[in-house]
Write a protein that binds this DNA or RNA. Structure first.
Lengths: 246, 246
DNA sequence: GAGTGGATTTCGCAT
DNA sequence: ATGCGAAGTCCACTC
């Protein structure tokens, strides 16, 4: 029942590197607390002077550097990066390198307080129910919410590499594109739908209706929609959940 | 030189809660490794069955839940949330609650392998050099992008404690101050540049041109710029990167 | 590999 | 407080 977790406390640079390399090869999750400075070069560049931080390296070699506050990591490297380690001026240097795009994260440790290595297993499937998905599902199952006698033909319909949430025909068999937004829709949403309508027109050579489904439309977006002949249908995630729970 | 780090290994639920509450109150960074399931309800909702995970709670009470792979946390709560803890069916329940918007994250621990509590200090200032720096560099290396026969004399020129992005002379040897914005520039940018021009005039006793370099100028900023005799040159980071990659 | 759109996006800055 | 746009966004997906 006890989990095997390895602790290395206050290691010398040599001891640290030795163990770091060993543990990194085990597909373990590594946790390091230490005093370090950080450099990053890549799509942007950053520097962070000395301070005490928490560094996590996961099985997939992704790395995140956390300061004592803030939800987001201050520096990071996504998975599939690789590591180089050495001692520079009696400091431990860990380089996490990403190939494409080429980016390099350098962590210089003045002092490692602790390194923890644990093999942790997590096979569960993460289920996320997003609001926009709920709304789409509710509309697909209850197309009368869109309009009487509306027929859904396709969800996530592809038009030249773009995706329309719902594609269907209205009671007069007129093709209709529906864009769903879970929050108040703005001009971007309207323009996005308009672009899809133009793409549809070009590809299929016929006019198409466009409907924004959202809890609200911003005032400017409403004006724009009117000018572009785009309709608006009020709907929201809470309502959607009600329909889905029936 | 040793850092005080508290370890609690394989605690009973009672011992864990006792220590969790105590350490949470210390503004420490808490690290928990354990087997747990997770529920989230809020802007969306999610479930995650039992598995071994790494949970981090920071000084500001932000919480992130990490699986053994992936750069991103699987669940989280931003700073300023508050905690409720209790034992439910012999499991440890930690609730992290956010008020606005109302969101609740529930972690049910079947087993805590270890809890680590550390007071870590990090006062350094994080410096990120992003697109604006690229734009400046591209302009310095290709001054004809500003104007034909433009000559860069100084970057980050200091005028009474303020810093102008680029200082140079135009084809008629007229001194010119350039303010770069990577995003749409507003009135503030215009006023900032105008202030630098005034400072320059005062210090050197001669007129100076002012140019805002940005992808766009807000309509009000454009009007203001015209009134103040400030010019505008369209440029952006994407373009800059192209020039820099040559 | 490039391009598009979503995200519990988060974050910062302006209005 | 709300809205808008950027982010080293990341990520999943299709062409």
């Amino acid at each position: 029942m006890r989990k095997k977790i390895i602790f290395i406390e206050n290691p010398s640079p040599q001891i640290f590197l030795e163990n770091f390399r060993k543990e990194l090869g085990k597909n373990n999750v590594l946790i390091i607390i230490g005093e370090c400075r950080i450099e990053y070069r890549g799509r942007a560049s950053s520097e962070l002077g000395y301070g005490e931080r928490l560094i996590i390296i996961k099985k997939d070699k992704s790395i995140i550097v956390h300061r004592p506050t803030g939800y987001e990591p201050v520096n990071w490297q996504p998975s599939q990066c690789f590591y180089k380690t050495r001692i520079v001026d009696s400091e431990i240097l860990i380089e996490a390198i990403r190939q494409r795009p080429f980016e390099i994260l350098k962590i210089f440790f003045k002092k490692v307080f602790i390194m923890i290595s644990a093999y942790i297993i997590d096979e569960s499937i993460f289920k996320l129910h997003g609001d926009e998905e709920d709304m789409r599902q509710a509309l697909v199952l209850n197309p009368q919410l869109i309009e009487d006698n509306f027929k859904v033909l396709e969800i996530e319909k592809e038009i030249d590499g773009n995706y329309v949430d719902i594609y269907g025909i209205d009671k007069d068999a007129k093709p209709t594109l529906i864009e769903i937004k879970k929050n108040t829709a703005g001009k971007n949403a309207v323009l996005q739908l308009y672009r899809y309508m133009m793409l549809y027109r070009k590809k299929y050579g016929r006019n198409v209706r466009g409907i924004i489904v959202a809890p609200k439309l911003k005032i400017n977006a409403l004006k724009l929609a009117k000018n572009l002949g785009i309709e608006f249908k009020r709907f929201n995630a809470k309502l959607a959940k009600k329909y889905l729970s029936k």
